[in-house]
Design a protein around this nucleic acid. Structure first.
Ligand SMILES: Nc1ncnc2c1ncn2[C@H]1C[C@H](O)[C@@H](COP(=O)(O)OP(=O)(O)OP(=O)(O)O)O1
Length: 664
DNA sequence: TCTTCTGTGCTCACCAC
DNA sequence: GTGGTGAGC
């Protein structure tokens, strides 16, 4: 998944002098200043990033769920095709390309598991019964849930480490900080240096015991005579003999490898999932490194090995170079591998594709400054869709699929709210498509309510469906081949404005205010039949219309006394003003949990406040405080050289525009 | 076993209009 | 708001 913004559209970034001299920084001398500085961010010469990827993930989920023995071949199928093949099954030559029947021929004892599905009326996806693509909808939700469990183990095992969920089965780790701490613990002499010696290089590092830590990607290419030039091969062979001395960054990587081996083992023992990991100096390389050797193993890419590891790689495999831009470059330079492009100068590539194409030049050299960033909101939209094998021909058939899609959204929103109770999808979108590029969508504001149900979603969606049907030309066949239902504008309701969590725990939902503008579009509430009694009401900002009613129990606001500033911190007083009556949920354990979580939030926010304050002092006030969200560790690490985000598209060079959003 | 290979069925994000 | 695309699992 991980749909990060395209690097070429992020805006300009400057090539630093040091980059052009020694782009990969592999010959950089590490000084005491480097070691002892905490704020180098992505330019830290001791940076250690890891990527962890679950092996044959969906298949592994089913193995765990069914408790099958690890050596039994198992595949997960979606209708007739395979979407995951475990490693024992791969031994039989089964791959994702196979149809289920063909796979069974290759291995008669193969265990085939179909992905969970919904049919109308189901409130949760399941494995029961025979599946039928014409009546069922697949659901990947159980895999998302398992994915979440793995992430939680990661967080438990590496507290304080920035972890970024990159896809359903992958996560990045910024291990720089724990590695540095371990380094200073193990080699305490590194910590004691007089100020005047700060810029002297560190002493030579100790030898490293790589055994047990993972596969070391070799510095010289492995003997594949095919791609070595004749004249150079003898020289090369000599070089292979002499492994260069280890660097302190190598030591850092080895510590990172220890940490990853530890968490991976925890995931295996606690949850039963085997994983593969890559450890390197940035995200791009970590991901590449993870695929060096797969299945319950990890690999390490030292800086000295970067160049040779990248050279033979087809560059169009690099993210964002697989599309039109990559194709244009391939044709322009008659190139297919990274090595083929290394002779292209940074000026050349920027002249041709715009200043921002610096990113291309950098990535070919293994430079990637992107940060590991825990996602604040888990997602911004949530969608469910279904290709209809049997196209819809009558408007009345729409309701059936709406309910099935809605069930998936309900289930997932509830699950997400278990962790993040303030999650709030602001809009519901329904799309109906007849073929590629032939369809329409309609959207409506989605009310903020505690208990989302299929009925509620369906009532709004049915309205949208009617609107869509209104667009149909009289008499022409419907032929809907694809339906899509999604929440968009998913955010967390702002704390401080109306104590959203109280709403969520309220047995009756809040009556939000309605602006005249939105009222016009919000007729959907008229026939939210199942919930006449204020259960669903439109709103614009979560402000209660009628504070006297539906009041949840918020009268004892959580508070605590900060040990650092001595102040008593409590939540907004006006929250409790807004709701003057308890509703009965007061003494339930649910309510207490809610109270506790509010207290936790309060503490966290206050800690963030102090953290930001400290940072401000450290950075001479250059850092902005008082931003709405919590100050995360990594945002504070952002360097000014990295302020590439949110540059207006005007800064974009005309050269690259033609590679995006051009019809073709 | 494995990166290549297909194609499906999805999910998510961003941008132009 | 709506439509379209790119990207990846
Ligand atoms: N093209 C696809 N279509 C549908 N589902 C996919 C596709 N690619 C991957 N998936 C699903 C099934 C996988 O178990 C899950 C994770 O993908 P991925 O990490 O690429 O492979 P994998 O986990 O099956 O094997 P590996 O051990 O090689 O990582 O996502």
């Amino acid at each position: 998944m991980d749909a990060e913004m395209h690097p070429l559209l992020k805006g300009k970034s400057k090539l630093l002098d040091t980059d052009s001299i020694d782009p990969t920084h592999q010959h950089e001398t590490i000084t005491y200043r480097h070691l002892l500085s905490q704020t180098l961010g992505s330019r830290d010469p001791l940076r250690v990033i890891a990527l962890c990827d679950s092996d044959a993930f969906y298949a592994a989920c089913e193995m765990v769920r069914l408790g099958t023995s690890p050596e039994l071949p198992l595949v997960v199928q979606q209708w007739d095709s395979l979407i995951a093949v475990n490693y024992p099954a791969r031994k039989f030559g089964i791959s994702r390309m196979d149809k289920a029947v063909d796979a069974k021929k290759k291995c008669p004892e193969l265990i085939c598991v179909h992905v969970p599905t919904y049919k109308e009326g189901d409130t949760e996806p399941g494995h029961w019964g025979p599946v039928d693509a014409r009546t069922h909808k697949t659901s990947l939700d159980t895999y998302r849930t398992e994915s979440g469990k793995i992430l939680n183990v990661f967080k438990e095992e590496l507290p304080g480490v920035e972890i970024e969920k990159a896809s359903i089965d992958e996560a990045f780790f910024d291990l720089t900080r724990p590695v540095r701490e371990a380094l200073l613990r193990r080699y305490p002499h590194l910590a004691s240096v007089s100020p005047k010696d700060m810029d002297t290089p560190l002493p030579p590092p100790p030898p490293i015991k790589w055994d047990e830590l993972g596969h070391l990607i070799p510095i010289e290419p492995e003997p594949t005579p095919a791609h070595e030039k004749e004249g150079e091969s003898s020289k090369l062979l000599e070089a292979v003999k002499e492994e260069p001395l280890p660097t302190w960054h190598d030591v850092a990587l080895s510590i990172g490898a220890e940490l990853m081996a530890g968490v991976r083992e925890k995931v295996r023992t606690k949850l039963g999932y085997t994983t593969s990991a890559g450890i390197a100096r940035n995200k791009f390389l970590a991901k590449l490194t993870a695929s060096y050797r797969k299945f319950n193993s990890q690999s390490i890419l030292r800086n000295a090995a970067i160049a040779n590891y990248l050279k033979p790689m087809p560059f169009q495999k690099i993210r964002f170079l697989g599309g039109k831009l990559g194709k244009a470059i391939a044709e322009e330079y008659d190139a297919s591998t990274v090595g083929d492009l290394l002779s292209v100068s940074v000026e050349e590539i920027q002249n041709r594709y715009g200043e921002s194409a610096l990113w291309v030049w950098e990535i070919l050299r293994g430079i990637d400054r992107s940060e590991v960033k825990a996602k604040t909101a888990l997602f911004k939209s949530m969608s469910a869709s279904k290709n209809l094998l049997k196209p819809l021909v009558k408007p009345a058939e729409g309701a059936h699929w709406i309910r099935i899609l809605a069930a998936d959204l309900v289930f997932r929103l509830k699950a997400a709210r278990a962790e993040q109770p303030t999650l709030w999808p602001k809009t519901l979108v329904l799309g109906a498509y007849k073929g590629f590029g032939n369809g329409h969508s309609k959207q409506a504001p989605f009310p903020f309510i505690k208990d989302v149900s299929v009925d509620i979603i369906a009532s709004v969606a049915d309205k949208l469906w009617k609107e869509l049907m209104g667009l149909e030309v009289e008499g022409s066949p419907l032929n809907i081949r694809h339906m899509h239902l999604s929440f968009t504008g998913v955010g967390t309701a702002e704390t401080g404005q109306g104590s959203i969590e109280c709403f969520l725990k309220s047995p009756l939902p809040i009556a939000p205010s309605v602006s005249t503008a939105s009222k016009r579009k919000l007729h959907a509430e008229e026939d939210l039949s199942a919930n006449e009694d204020d259960d669903v009401l439109p709103f614009t900002d979560g402000t209660p219309i009628n504070p006297g009613r539906n009041s949840p129990d918020c009268h004892t606001a959580p508070s605590f006394t900060c040990t650092r500033c001595g102040k008593t911190i409590n939540s907004e007083v006006n929250n409790s003003d807004a709701f003057n009556d308890a509703t009965g949920a007061t003494n339930t354990s649910e309510a207490r949990l809610d109270w506790n979580s509010k207290l936790d939030n309060l503490k966290r926010e206050h800690e963030d406040y102090h953290y930001a304050l400290d940072l401000t002092r450290r950075t001479n006030g250059t850092l902005k405080v008082g931003m709405p969200g919590p100050v995360s560790g990594s945002s504070s690490k952002k360097r000014k050289t990295e302020s590439r985000s949110r540059v207006s598209t005007k800064g974009k060079s005309p050269g690259i525009e033609r590679f995006f959003n051009t019809s073709k």
